[in-house]
Design a protein around this nucleic acid. Structure first.
Lengths: 297, 297
DNA sequence: TGTGATGTTTAGGATGCCTACATGGAGGTC
DNA sequence: GACCTCCATGTAGGCATCCTAAACATCACA
């Protein structure tokens, strides 16, 4: 019963194919195949079986794969205790983030971490809510968001902590009749053209909420993912759009007006695997995130 | 952070010297010394330091040694889950026992285990209560007893489960005036010669309880450890003695009379290290022990 | 029926773990 | 103080293990 084998089975379960695990761990598929063989010989049980083009875990493989988390977390806790005793945490923390929240949070985090021995490796990606969880395979911490709950879809088994709650406002062109309003309700915004996002992407549920509340169907003139592009389209007066308050820069071309009467808030959530979050360096970054997040609202 | 190193540090902490660990794990001290060096190089911290003739753990070594239990227990739980799925447990369970409780319990346990694939390796030793805990290093399960609490002295960090509660009776020679009594109180038994046990050994606390309750000092004509020897001395009329009810055979030469008015019960307790008790084979034996123990009272 | 993706096999090289033996220091004994 | 024992450490070499590279086998899909 070796930790290496448990880890391999867990990775295999998560990444699906030997090749993917091999690439992620900088080894060859051959090495992993041999490790699986060795583990099966030592334990006397089949751990994987061929399934279509790839492999599937047997019941025994499943047991070991799910047990791996406990073992690796225990190991990570020991490492954390050691780091704790050694003083200042150090090392590189790999962060993946959705762009808007990253823009709002990470400058502050980096500033707070300047002068420490912590390094940040940053990557950004714009995904559907449910896809952020998968990126925790490649990053220690993933900054995701959730429109409906405090845990993003798909992140149920992971560590997750709400960093901030960000209102989602209606971006109104400066000359638009609604631009002077202090706040808007769903009935105000129907009948105007909208710059929307594709289904499943951020804020789509808010638009659907507006439709559900009014019974109307919004006129979606385009479907755009990138918020900068949305901003410039709104600025040119092409229509209304939804934009997150903290990460949208002020502009003379549009105004952000709060939307009430439907749920128009997203939770910005940091998610990660338990064994990685247990690292002292990672939890230090998490603290910094929470700090900066609290300062936003 | 390798499990092998954690285990080594834990063993070193428990057994005291590299040589003792080497003997217990069938390796040379040189090998272990090299392992310590490797671990220190990998972690970048000193784990041990010379102290008098041997080694002492540094603060970092202490952290890893205490973290080892969590990690090894997690591993053992995975193994147990695997065994569970595989059906019947198998393997050898090493039991150490105090002789009297072993005599009362183990025939029943062995009978219950006949026909399974479980093997029992048995050893017995007569020790002071506080010394049983140390034997869990060499046995999966140690059957000990406790006169005052439900956990034997020294076994605080270990798994422990009460298997049975055994009354300690007064063994009275058949012709003795007290032999016909249905029960005795402390006042009844002072003024008679006693066959006692050395201080710190089983039942000594009961005798001290009798003295505390009456204010008298008992006349101890001998101090004997072995219960069989005590039985024969009582049978010859040399004096009164304390004997455990379940593990003392009936005889025409003496009678066992219950003692009331002082705590005269011992808890027969199975103790073991968490990672070993997590083994499915061990917990199966534990179940059998509890079964047999429940049948005694 | 090819073509690409996937896992497996084999051989060989690098690394790591362990034993045997020699060395050095610390305590205890006469 | 000389000697002995216990304990840890250093060195050299054997052996197992883990990995890579390359060829192979299998399956799905077009």
């Amino acid at each position: 019963m070796e930790v290496r084998h448990l880890e391999l089975l867990r990775d295999l379960k998560e990444r699906g194919t030997l090749g993917a695990v091999a690439a992620a761990t900088y080894r060859t598929a051959s090495a992993l195949s041999q490790q699986l063989r060795t583990a099966e010989r030592e334990l006397g049980v089949a751990l994987v079986e061929p399934a279509s083009r790839g492999l599937r875990l047997t019941w025994a493989g499943e047991i070991l794969a799910s047990g791996a988390d406990d073992v690796l977390s225990a190991l990570a806790r020991v490492q954390a205790a050691l780091d704790e005793g050694r003083g200042e945490p150090s090392g590189t923390v790999r962060i993946g983030t959705l762009p808007s929240a990253g823009a709002a949070l990470l400058p502050g985090v980096m500033a707070r971490l300047a002068g420490t021995r912590l390094q940040i490796a940053l990557e950004d990606f714009d995904l559907a809510e449910a896809d952020y969880a998968g990126r925790t395979l490649d990053h220690d911490l993933v900054i995701a968001h959730s429109l409906s709950a405090d845990v993003p879809a798909g992140a149920e088994g992971l560590f997750s902590g709400v960093v901030a709650r960000e209102p989602i406002d209606v971006a109104v062109p400066a000359e638009h009749p609604l631009a002077a309003r202090a706040s808007l309700v769903p009935e105000d915004v129907v009948g105007h053209p909208w710059i929307a996002v594709p289904r499943g992407f951020p804020f789509a549920t808010v638009l659907e909420g507006v439709e559900a509340a009014t019974g109307a169907t919004l006129e979606r003139i385009v479907e755009i993912r990138d918020n900068r592009l949305v901003e410039s389209l709104v600025g040119r007066g092409l229509g209304l759009a939804l934009l997150p308050r903290f990460s949208t820069p002020p502009s003379e071309d549009y105004r952000l007006v709060p939307l009430t009467g439907v749920r128009a808030t997203r939770a910005i959530v940091a998610i990660g695997r338990h064994d990685r979050v247990a690292r002292r360096a990672v939890s230090a970054v998490l603290d910094a995130l929470a700090d900066v997040g609290a300062g936003l609202s």
